[in-house]
Design a protein around this nucleic acid. Sequence first.
DNA 1: CGCCCACTTGAGGAATGTCAATCTCCGTGG
DNA 2: CCACGGAGATTGACATTCCTCAAGTGGGCG
Lengths: 216, 216
Amino acid sequence: MDTFKTGELSVEAKTTIQMEGAKTPHLYTVSSGMGVRYKTLENGRRQVINFIMPGDFVGLQAGVMGEAGHSIESTTPMVLCTFQRQDLWRLFQSYPSRAYDLVWLAASEEAFLGQSLATVGQRSGIERVSWALLKLYGRLDQLGLTKGNSVSLPYRQQDLADALGLSLVHTNKTLSELRSRKMADWSNGALTILDREALQSTAMMEAEERGPRPLM
Amino acid sequence: MDTFKTGELSVEAKTTIQMEGAKTPHLYTVSSGMGVRYKTLENGRRQVINFIMPGDFVGLQAGVMGEAGHSIESTTPMVLCTFQRQDLWRLFQSYPSRAYDLVWLAASEEAFLGQSLATVGQRSGIERVSWALLKLYGRLDQLGLTKGNSVSLPYRQQDLADALGLSLVHTNKTLSELRSRKMADWSNGALTILDREALQSTAMMEAEERGPRPLM
DNA sequence: CGCCCACTTGAGGAATGTCAATCTCCGTGG
DNA sequence: CCACGGAGATTGACATTCCTCAAGTGGGCG
């Protein structure tokens, strides 16, 4: 993939990397740092589509369709490798196996969005929060960023609320409910899983095995 | 694409075409008929992910990942063209432009799911229903299936409710609200758009231009 | 004729949202 | 060193949307 790399982008925390509707979107691979993908509605409400973590490949949708469908913002300082849109087509002609990996990534993303949709549409507040904390922890665990059963999670409660379609206040109360039940504790930027079994059962979510995942 | 076609599948209404978790999923192109893609949670609740209409290419996610992430059910009688999973890889090697179309489709699907997520997560009941009716009408219009400002819409209210994360009762009451406001009327299997402007403004949704769309 | 499915309607209750005040950090300027 | 201000988290009181339960209607089909 290094052939296609055109540059490196370093941004501070709370920087907008891509705006919804941008016509010349870039493609990125995340080297380090974390962020969010989100959409903003006319009424100002915000839906967080996904949380962005190291290793993620972002902007494929925007790259293929020519217009970004969502905004991207850094939460912590981030470093990203950038690619050109037009190189995408070159990749398809020259490296079919890389192209296949790309569809694999797109399909995974679609699968994840389907799960999110089911969560937001059909689960109660405490189920949604449990589900999200497990998902977040799982991804960070896979990256080897956990220590014991804790992990640094630099987002705000507002971000989680906007991802789950809950109000900030309700999210806060739900988080403290999980804390008092000794199931999970997210405070001071660190998430600790205290009782995975209980979390999984209230989230109504079965443990899932993780296959290999192509890196871009 | 005919090279890859391996058969044709005709099913009656209310037939399950693919089950969530199926290990040998097929790929399909819809020739005629309509259906739904959905996920079922442990508690029995159902999330409709998308409505399937003629021309849709379904099962890409399942085909690439090797396991279906959702079920597919016909609502009306349907005719589908079937493809083999293993041919997907062959396609990538031999027809990069077709492969590129495939990513395009995957990206569109992802974009649509993002919009759905924002709708279910951030909009109120009446906003969600308005949004959904406009989306459904728009897709059918593009297929040339509309007459005047009406179109046949064979789904049940329960299907719409499950797509929007609302209860059947509330969906029903919201539909009759839209009817009494003379904005839209969906009854007896036909959807009529009575006041597009009003629908768009309550859905908080701007009109969108539609580009060409690859057929598979 | 009678059943089943989808749709409809009313009443009451629970989950979640909104508003508003307070608290705790933490960085900055004086 | 301390006052000030802002961002995020927390909490209480109240409002409202939406859900659940329950009953009833109407059409299609065996």
